[in-house]
């Protein structure tokens, strides 16, 4: 195993492209070191991207924010402005693990680990986030929902990695929220997660919405029916019932050590409803 800490994207891409065997990116390391420790993976090359300029920065861009791949959850929270615009995204990221994990874990790592239960992913999807993928051939911007393919598998090609996440400017009267269910109060993997973002008109009618569910399928789901259920409403009880029903209907979970199929289906609806109420309140300001 080799450890490299290049100081340019080009050098990092070069290392990854040429590498034989298994190579991994190191940013926060909170998934990578666990996988190495358990013997799940034995990388031949680890590329630490934290020395690359920009990786640990959050910069304003086109009214939104570009968040470097090595920005930790704690740094994201302390930034303040991102959380003001996209509270759902920041809250979701901050739910990952403990204070200690927050000191290291990144949104991009959460995304590229490709766990169906990743907390930040449904929230990013709801916010319309894109991932900037750098690689040997070109740089491309990809909707976050297109990165994870299946548990542990991404759409990234050899030599490619995600260098940053872009959160677009939130339109006026936009609110977002993310809720998850865990058996304890902390330190658990989501049994179900629900991310939602919505925009209202001046009368409080929802004009746009995006809803994403985590841990109820092989990857985070974008549920159009959930959005349809509330667009055009003022989030009255009937709209909330439709939303919950649509979320439960979309959930295609499995039973495992963390939860059962029935439980996940039911709670997907409960969380979608609760998250919508929070997001709506935030949108109204």
């Amino acid at each position: 195993m080799r450890y490299e800490a290049p100081d340019t994207i080009k050098a990092a891409v070069g290392l990854l492209s040429k590498a034989k065997g298994t190579s991994r990116i190191l940013a926060g390391g909170t998934d990578l070191l666990v996988q190495m420790r358990s013997g799940m993976i034995e990388p031949d090359l680890v590329v630490d991207i934290k020395s690359i300029p920009g990786m640990r920065e959050i910069v304003a861009e086109k009214g939104g924010f570009r968040i470097g791949a090595a920005v930790s959850g704690a740094e994201l929270e302390e930034h303040g402005k991102v959380g003001k615009m996209w509270p759902g995204v920041v809250e979701a990221t901050n739910l990952i693990g403990s204070t200690q994990i927050q000191g290291r874990a990144t949104m991009v790592g959460n995304l590229c680990n490709a766990s169906p239960a990743a907390d930040s992913v449904p929230a990013m999807i709801a916010a319309g986030a894109t991932a900037r993928v750098v690689g040997p051939k070109r740089t491309r911007d990809v909707p976050v929902e297109d990165i994870a393919k299946a548990p542990g598998k991404t759409s990234l090609a050899k030599g490619e990695f995600v260098a940053s996440i872009f959160l677009p400017k939130a339109p006026a009267r936009t609110g977002s929220a993310y809720l998850r269910f865990i058996p304890r109060t902390e330190m658990d993997i989501a049994v179900v997660g629900a991310g939602i973002a919505m925009t209202l008109n001046a009368k409080g009618v929802i004009t746009a919405a995006k809803v994403s569910l985590g841990a109820v399928a092989a990857r985070a789901l974008v549920v159009e029916e959930c959005a349809k259920a509330i667009i055009g409403s003022t989030l009255d009880d009937a709209a909330l019932d439709r939303l919950a029903a649509a979320a439960s209907a979309a959930a295609k979970p499995i039973s495992d050590k963390r939860g059962t199929v029935d439980f996940r289906i039911k709670v997907a609806g409960v969380l979608a409803r609760r998250a919508a109420v929070i997001a709506y309140d935030r949108a109204r300001g």
């Binding site: 058996p183 304890r184 109060t185 902390e186 330190m187 658990d188 993997i189 050590k257 963390r258």
Partner: peptide
């Protein structure tokens, strides 16, 4: 300790 959930 992640999935054997002792109280935190």
């Amino acid at each position: 300790f992640l999935d054997y959930r002792i109280p935190v």
